[in-house]
Design a protein around this nucleic acid. Structure first.
Lengths: 220, 220, 220, 220
DNA sequence: TATGAATGAGGGTTCATTCAT
DNA sequence: CATGAATGAACCCTCATTCAT
């Protein structure tokens, strides 16, 4: 699960190789702080993680932290956005490998994929908690490391799929908003506390709910 | 909106009048702490509120705090449960004044009423945030002040209404869970940030979504 | 080991029976505090025992504590004196059941008996620690409960035995002082930490040392 | 008696001179804390000395304390070990200036020298109290300041002297243990309270006792 | 850029003591 | 005598932030 802990950094990346040595070193420190912070945040909670903890485990000096982040919460927010975008990206990539055609099928596929990812990684779920909101997804999806912003924008892709859909919806934006909120919120208790039931038992109900929300929004 | 900030204390309450002088005084201190804490929590956030802040504004000594609460989070949890129960109680009371008969109508009424309450009181919404979960509603609704536990249990009442309904549902528990999560989560951004739109514009969509979720769960 | 925990109180004691009811009640509270404090002091240490702990477990109100003791250390000192006197008293009683005649034999018997008592009750040893000093024994042996001071004074008895001894010593007082200090101090580490060896292996060396000290003080 | 209060720091020390400026500064803070703490501990007792007291008088910030010591007791333990080692070291150094040959003479000399040091410095005696135990002497003698660990190990030297002695003893370890305990314990009351007599009057009795203990352990 | 020793305000918590009942 | 709610000073300890190197 190394990929879970290494954020947006690939040591064989040719782009990175082309950076000057000092810039690479700089990036290394930054990434070390990000990865370490994610580790600590997920394993012991944000409130229980001090900047001292982070720099110590990351192997950099305390003052260095302030060269890259305003404070602990600045770092946290960047992580949340990055991780949320990562989840959706993975789901979208998986979608592209399918032959699904209708928007309803696509949305259900992505929803299911996201739920699977979250239930496979409870620490991640706990961390991004209920922050997987539409607002975050829509406006704040950013590449965490400057210089790598050229990745695909998954939300844009989804919006394109909406436009391309044969079936039209009253307000696709709102529809997706409600679906995202429902998934994020309802999954949370189910995955973490098995309340009101384990996620695998809840899953078909959620799928039904999503489908019925979409159908109620169809324009004929 | 003073009533929003004064928790379970009614100086004309005959029960209270029958308490001994010292017991009444004790209650006064406790209530002062609760009310002050709610004020501070909602206005400046829990993380930014210290016990020192609370006792200072409440006009009691620091040690007194620990006579009544284990720590800041103990106090917070009691407040959340109490406030959540209060909201649902108000909605249920309003429901009783109507002539609605079907479960669908009743649920929609309560949902709408809760949304109205939350949008009328953004601070309260921020405080109970996304904590208006089914788990909290189902298991932890408590009267915050000892001696007043005899109030109606609203969740129980709702469950009775489910049983009494002519229309039957596949899994009413899950259905209500999803509805509560959807309302709590979707209202949050809409009310606080007008995202993706102001709550009054979002409201009909939410109602539709709730209705469609319920209909998809009907057993014929 | 009830007797270890009940200090100088015998509920069938006729003296006590003759006390007025309120006086008995008063004594009960006092004894409860003493017994509870000894329990807590030995089991969790004096520093970790608060007056709150004591009164709570003793079942009396906080203010009541101050009716009987100045503070925690006042209580502790009374306990130490009482317990030290109790140990010596037991040893002396056991001595009386023997037919030993010489002072050397008697002192060695008492020393051995005290060591046995201490090693049988490590908590007690820890509590009176190295406080089993001659000063305490000589000047401060008191009955812990007022009204029971008429018990035998064991130190006096020992001094009588010294006088009655055929063999005379240069300075019996100093000799006994050194013996008491040696026993108290040397036993401590041996019993609690097996350092430099377990008490049962150390015991013969100690007996030899005591005997040699006594012999070196003989006057011929 | 300044040397009693200044711990292991010699401003003319060439080793120190070779340290970097910041390292020297660091050491200065640490030593300031140690010296101040010893002052306060001896003059007003450990229990009555708070970390606030120490840092205030030492002229450093509160947080600085925790850069060097875990807590008050960590500091205390380091001081006790250091001071105990210092006393024995002085006694041993004095011994080397004599022409004494037998082990008995050497032990008696060291005992006398230690007693003199303790009676010259009652505060020090009170501080290390009865902690001058064989266990401490044997296992925990440490140099308090890092970088100065190369001093002679006095206990080792004594053990060598035992081996080199013509006269052999049954169990030299136990013999020395008992002697140390006797000196530490018997001196305490005598020096601090003149009980059972002032130390100078007690001294010959103690010497006799030590000699007799040693003789009783001789192997012929 | 990078460091890490130093800071000191402020946190939570405890607890001996008081005093009105 | 007995109570126990209330006190508030004092405690230990953390930690974000700074700044000379």
């Amino acid at each position: 699960m190394q990929s879970e802990r290494t954020i947006g950094i690939n040591k064989e990346n040719p782009i990175l190789a082309s950076l000057s040595k000092s810039a690479a070193n700089k990036k290394k420190k930054r990434d070390s702080l990000l990865n370490t912070a994610f580790d600590l945040f997920t394993n012991q909670g944000i409130a229980n993680t001090s900047i001292s903890n982070i720099v110590e485990q990351a192997g950099v000096a305390k003052g260095t932290f302030y060269l890259y982040f305003k404070d602990k919460y600045d770092l946290r927010d960047r992580l949340i956005r990055y991780k949320a975008s990562e989840i959706l990206g993975k789901a979208y990539t998986a979608l592209e490998a399918t032959a699904l055609t209708t928007l309803e099928d696509k949305v259900l596929f992505i929803a299911g994929n996201v739920i699977s990812q979250l239930s496979d990684n409870r620490l991640l779920l706990k961390f991004i908690s209920k922050n997987l909101s539409w607002g975050v997804l829509k406006h704040e999806l950013v590449q965490i490391t400057p210089g790598f912003e050229d990745d695909v924008n998954f939300v844009e892709k989804i919006q394109e799929a909406v436009k391309a859909s044969d079936v039209k919806y009253r307000n696709p934006e709102v529809m997706l908003y409600m679906i995202v909120e429902l998934i994020g919120s309802a999954s949370y208790n189910s995955i973490l506390n098995d309340e009101p039931m384990p996620i695998e038992k809840l899953r078909p109900f959620l799928m039904d709910a999503i489908r019925s929300i979409m159908r109620s929004q169809e324009i004929h």
